Amino acid sequence: MKEEERILCLDHYEHGIVINALNTLRNGLIGERRSTDAVDDLLLKAIDAPYNKGKYRRQHASR
């Protein structure tokens, strides 16, 4: 079965929030002496995520 990919478009501020939240979660897990492997992988993916080169348009749902 093919794994589905998701595209998440974030501006600079939102990207920072995601990085900060993942790092806070990681620090909490370290404090609890629990495995951080999954969070580490996701944190690295978020940090190394490429910039949008116009392939995907940002869409907002009305709130």
Rank of each mutant, 00 (worst) to 15 (best):
M1Y: 08
M1N: 03
K2R: 01
K2Y: 01
K2C: 02
K2Q: 04
E3A: 13
E3R: 15
E5C: 15
E5A: 14
E5M: 15
E5S: 15
R6Q: 09
R6W: 01
R6P: 00
I7F: 05
L8D: 02
L8Y: 09
L8P: 01
L10P: 12
D11Q: 01
D11K: 03
H12N: 06
H12P: 00
Y13H: 07
E14T: 11
E14Q: 13
E14K: 09
H15Y: 10
H15Q: 12
G16D: 13
I17Q: 07
I17L: 06
I17N: 03
V18F: 07
V18N: 02
I19R: 05
A21I: 05
A21C: 08
L22F: 14
L22N: 04
N23Q: 15
N23K: 11
N23H: 12
T24W: 07
L25C: 07
R26W: 07
N27S: 03
N27I: 01
G28A: 02
G28E: 13
L29P: 01
L29G: 01
L29F: 09
L29Q: 06
I30P: 01
I30E: 10
I30Q: 04
G31M: 04
E32N: 04
R33T: 01
R33E: 04
R34V: 13
R34E: 15
R34H: 14
R34S: 15
S35T: 12
S35Y: 00
S35L: 04
S35M: 08
T36Y: 06
T36S: 11
D37G: 04
A38Y: 09
A38N: 05
A38C: 03
V39P: 03
V39L: 03
D40R: 15
D40N: 15
D41M: 12
L42Y: 04
L43G: 09
L43M: 12
L43Y: 14
L43T: 13
L43N: 09
L43D: 14
L44A: 11
L44Y: 10
L44M: 11
K45P: 01
A46F: 03
A46M: 07
I47G: 02
D48R: 07
D48F: 04
D48V: 00
A49I: 05
P50G: 09
P50D: 12
P50A: 11
P50W: 05
Y51Q: 03
Y51C: 01
Y51P: 00
Y51A: 07
Y51K: 11
N52D: 08
N52A: 14
N52W: 05
K53T: 14
K53D: 13
K53I: 09
K53N: 11
G54N: 04
G54I: 04
K55Y: 12
K55F: 06
Y56M: 10
Y56H: 15
R57K: 13
R58Q: 09
Q59F: 01
H60A: 00
H60W: 01
H60V: 00
A61G: 03
A61M: 01
A61Y: 02
S62G: 02
S62N: 03
S62V: 04
R63A: 15
R63M: 12
R63N: 12
